[in-house]
């Protein structure tokens, strides 16, 4: 079995600070391999240990954090690591990233499974996995809490969605996105970390893969604040309460809270 895990470093948003004018201080924010991506790697390692598999990790971006994401994947047990070189990777649009990962899969595969985290802790767009499946034209199981290889060429995943629990069974090759609820990812020991530093990361260029890496430049990024209106509708008696309620309802309608 051959498994490709798409990984990406993410900002630790719990430690994100802002300038007084609301500009995020990204340079001061720690970056590490995303939690859901770690869980995807852990699922790959468990399949490798149980059934035997070659596990490759791939990322798109040339920052030090991207190289570290592949080294962290090696430390967790990945056998191969691919890095698609791209400057300013945080501004790449999702379809470009998904296209690059799909091209890596085509160039270094075939893979039975393409795994990735169900969403990054910072952007949490959750579209990379679906896009990879769309580009490769293979089944998608998105948001898996429990992953199971049921036999040769058959994979099953259970997902909690808005209206209930779904268990999907698909033929491989398939794309599976894994939530941070799926498992407790292993913590690599010192020996594995040291070994990972000596492992080769295969760099690939967008040109080599034939993919156009497009960026989506934001016009502005500011701290998101919901400002309280601090309006109090006072009522002294029952009649006043009825009037205050009517005023409150009118205000909620005018703000678009109620239709």
């Amino acid at each position: 079995m051959k498994i490709l895990v798409a990984v990406k470093p993410t900002f630790d948003i719990g430690q994100l600070k802002f300038e007084k004018d609301g500009t995020p201080l990204l340079d001061a924010c720690p970056v590490s391999l995303g939690e859901a991506d770690r869980c995807a790697l852990e699922e790959a390692m468990r399949i490798k240990e149980r059934l035997g598999a070659t596990v490759a990790a791939a990322t798109v971006g040339s920052s030090e954090a991207h190289y570290k994401a592949i080294r962290d994947s090696y430390a967790m047990g990945a056998d191969e690591g691919y890095l698609v070189k791209a400057d300013d990777p945080w501004k790449l649009d999702a379809l470009s990233v998904a296209s690059a990962i799909a091209r890596v899969a085509a160039a270094t595969g075939p893979y039975d499974l393409v795994l990735t985290g169900s969403g990054a802790g910072d952007t949490h767009a959750s579209v990379i996995g679906p896009m990879i499946a769309g580009i490769l034209g293979i089944p998608l199981i998105a948001g898996v809490d429990r992953l199971e290889v049921r036999g040769p060429g058959v994979v099953a995943g259970t997902c909690k969605l808005e209206d209930g629990s779904y268990t999907y069974e698909a033929r491989t090759p398939a794309v599976v996105t894994v939530t941070s609820e799926a498992n407790a990812p292993r913590i690599p020991n010192l020996r594995a970390i040291l070994r990972s530093k000596g492992m080769q990361i295969r760099e690939m260029s967008a040109e080599e893969l034939g993919v156009d890496l497009r960026r989506l430049e934001p016009l502005s990024v500011r701290k998101y604040e919901i400002k309280r209106k601090r309006i109090i509708y006072k009522a002294e008696d029952q009649k006043g309460a009825a009037e205050a309620s009517a005023e409150l309802l009118a205000a909620l309608r005018s703000e678009g809270v109620l239709s």
């Binding site: 910072d122 952007t123 502005s220 998101y224």
Partner: peptide, 12 residues
């Protein structure tokens, strides 16, 4: 919304 809902970004 970006960065886990802590910031908002405007795009064209």
């Amino acid at each position: 919304l970006v960065y886990g809902g802590r910031a908002e970004a405007e795009f064209l």
